[in-house]
Structures are given as C-alpha cells and as structure tokens.
Design a binder for these strands. Structure first.
Lengths: 240, 240
DNA sequence: ACAACGGATGTGTTATAACAGATGCCAGAC
DNA sequence: GTCTGGCATCTGTTATAACACATCCGTTGT
C-alpha cells in the first residue's frame, strides 16, 4: 500500500545555522545514469555515433564501465526525448535521418528557433553580444580554413548561445533535443562532398544586426533563412 | 569489450512463408515499464494526480503491483519528456503550473499547434471532418449542460483529432507532451470558480470552417485565438 | 522543559541474477 | 548440395538486494 510518504520536506533551504555562512557548496557526484546520458549526448553531438548504429544496454554499460541498470536508464531517457529510436526488437538505434524526417524536424525547428530568437532579441546583455561576435569570428575563420567540423561546432555554439538568452528553459531544452536529432547526420556535410561555399556568415551577421537594432521580426526572418540554407545543403545528401 | 553485436537483423519483414498468408497478427504484451508510463499519462490527463504530488518508485510500483524497476523506468521517461519534474531530493513530482511556466508553455504551444493546424488543413479526409463535427457537438452539449470535465475532455479530443491529420509523428508527440504538462492544472477551471461562459465554440467553428475552405492561415489564426481564450480563463487561477 | 543525540524509516541508486524471445551458426538428414 | 532442426549466444525485461543519504521521531541528558 502506498499509504506512506505523505509529507516530506525538500532539502533546498538547508536551514543555514546562523554564524556559519558562505562556506561554498560541495558538489555531489551526478548519478551514473545522468552521466551516461550526457556521455551519449556528447557523442551524438560530436558525430561519433553513426546513424543506424545499435546501442545495447550491455555494450553501453561495458563501454562506460558501469552496470547495465544506469546504462539502460540513459538509453530510456534519450528514447523518451526522441533522440534515439527503438528498433523492431526494441533495441535502441541512432535514427537514420531520412528526407521526410528532416523536413518534419525542419518545420518544427523553424517555428521554435524563430520564437526563441525573437524572444532573445531584447534580452541579449552586452557580454553575451560580445561572446556571440567572438563565436561569429571563430565560425568565419573555420569556414575560411575549410575546417568543416570546426565550422559546424561553431555554428551550433552560436545558435545555442543566442537561444539561451530567451530565458525559457523548456523551449531551450526542446530546441537542444531537436539539434541532437539532426546532429549525427551533419557529418555528411563535410565527409561526403562539401559542395558550395558556406553561406552562414551572411545570416549570422543579420542575426547580430537584429540584436543591435532590437528588431525581433528581423531576427526571426534571419533564423528562418539560416535554417533554410542549411536545409538546401543537407537535403540532397540525405537518403530517401 | 563491446566487440560483439556487429550485425543483427530486425524481425520486421518476418519472411512470410509462401502459402501461409493472412493469419492475423498476435499481440505481444507491452513491457511493464511502457504500461506503467501509459497509466501515469492517463492519470495525468484525467487530473487524478494533483500538482505537487510526489511519485516515488516504490509507491508507483506498489500501486500498480509491479517491481520498482519498471516503475522507475516509467518515471524516468516522463521526467525526460518534461511531464514530471525532479524535486530537490530527486524524487519525481507533478509540476505545479506557475504563471511564468504557463506563459512559456503557451508561447510554445501557439507556434506548434498553429503549425500542426496549418499543415493539417489540407489533409483532413471526409470521415475525419465528420468526426471533428461530432466531437464539436459533444463539446457544445457538455458546455451547455455545465459539464466542465466533459467539456475539457471533448476539447482535448477535438484538438488532438485535428493535429493528428498533419501526419507528422514527432510534432504530434511534442504537442501531446505539452498538453500533458498543462493537463493536471486544468481542473482549476471547473473546481474553483468557473467564471465566464465557455467561448471555445466560436473558435472551434472557425477551425472547422478553415478546413472546409482549405485556408491554412485562417486555421492558424483560429487556433491561436482558441489558445488565447484558454489562457485568459486559466491564467488568473494559477499561482504566481 | 528544552535541546541534542541516535536509531528507524523512506528513498534514490546501483549491481546482480534470472527469464524469455530472437538470431545465427552448425550439424545432420534427405 | 540443400534444407531442417537444435543449440549457443545476444538482448531486452524484470525482480531482488544492498548501499548511501536524508528525514523523522523518540529518548535522554541537562
């Protein structure tokens, strides 16, 4: 019977004894499941895990030197987020990004990222603007040098730093989850044939200009155009 | 070492032996974790679980007569989706819908549901249109009879049936997850003070008209207006 | 009477083991 | 030689147990 646990106080306030303040905070180690989930996320972002690859609980557990239980938990979380899929035999697999699936994600991302950009427009502090400009230069340098991987990483950092400014945690988390779903297939951009010049610089400049002028609609339009250019480059490389 | 499991074929095609066809399909029982997750979802939708309520693994397990392992998996999934939150001591709790949180969800829902509606506009088959009209009448009757719970359920069914027509599974799943986050607090609409008449009928009529005329923009506008009316009713009832 | 100490209890976390289903390989029969 | 049967193995699923931490309550000492 679940008749227990009717009242329990959180440990947040921590009843600080008067006279002992400002001792700093000790960091509790994150649970293995959360750590494993973060490891998989990172690998997905980095493109280390290829689309179609199977992720079994025991393999993940052995790779990370943990027991199958937290490994399974990490996989379960990513599946619930839509970042991983379940195969026919219920084994988790890195989804292959078909054109149809990309088109769907593109539509959703356009709405959500434009929303985050519009909202962020009036909330970018000077230091964040400086950071965005720095990332912009990093991105431009990577493009100039033909460093596809570096350009992709800088591009992700740029968008992420902008969206963070909107201050809506759920929206940020949803956008991050969507990027994670596209991420593993982005390596196609510089592994196969990197045709055409990288055009992102123009749209990124437009985004920075929108921050300066505080023009939310211009920001939304610039983001949509940026995503649209990415779509034009990636779509022909995707499987039907 | 994860050196094993390099090749494994799915069991989807099932190599149907020639000569034996159309035997029907046997239904495999869903895993306990998935069943438990669905139970919790249903309870959330029905408003059985109150905001702020703690969900411990052992309580959920005992209530559903399963072991803690699948109960924990179900909770993990809902937390990953954002439907449940983790308290300070990492116990899952039904989130309390503050005004700020509702405003965030409202912004996201406006974009996503308007998108789904626009896309669905040209894809509603005659039988689905008939079903929508039937749900509309059910909704109107519940409103007329002052049946708040029934009206809420019919409203959810109406929106759900419309969005399904867009044919984008990820989008539908995201919208469903968002409704689940608002759901537990909707009981406030008819438990506390149900002030003002239910205005949804007008916007729902506009949505049906948009289907008939195939006017995607009108559909988007009608959905935004519908959500906006709901916001006006619910917002004053929410805690700061 | 009040405060501090210490055990009892609840809870998340993790490891381990056992079970069931599916796949692949290998041997044996025709 | 090819097909059929069975065994070994991989994998998800689930139960159980043990550990650590936090909270709560009763007791005890002043």
């Amino acid at each position: 019977m679940p008749a227990a646990a009717l009242a329990r106080l959180p440990l947040e306030p921590a009843t600080s004894a008067i006279g002992l303040v400002d001792l700093g905070t000790i960091d509790r180690p994150a649970p293995l499941g959360a750590q494993a989930s973060e490891m998989l996320r990172s690998a997905l972002r980095r493109g280390t895990l290829r689309p179609g690859q199977r992720l079994t609980t025991r393999d993940v557990a052995a790779t990370l030197s943990i027991s199958p239980t937290p490994a399974r938990e990490a996989i379960t979380r990513l599946v619930a987020e839509g970042v991983l899929e379940l195969g026919a035999d219920r084994t988790a697999v890195v989804p292959v990004l078909t054109r149809a699936r990309y088109e769907e994600l593109f539509l959703i991302r356009s709405e959500l990222e434009a929303l985050a950009g519009r909202l962020a427009c009036g909330r970018v502090e000077p230091d964040r603007l400086a950071r965005l400009e720095s990332i912009y230069r990093t991105h431009a340098a990577a493009v100039e040098a033909g460093d596809g991987s570096g350009a992709l990483a800088a591009n992700a950092t740029f968008h992420n730093a902008l969206y963070e400014a909107c201050g809506l945690p759920t929206l940020i988390q949803m956008i991050d989850s969507l990027w994670l779903q596209v991420g593993p297939s982005l390596t196609l951009l510089f592994s196969g044939g990197a045709q055409g010049p990288w055009i992102g610089a123009t749209t990124h400049r437009a985004m920075i200009r929108a921050i300066r002028t505080g023009d939310a609609e211009a920001m939304g339009a610039a983001i949509r155009q940026d995503l649209n250019e990415g779509r034009g480059r990636l779509l022909p490389l995707l499987p039907a």
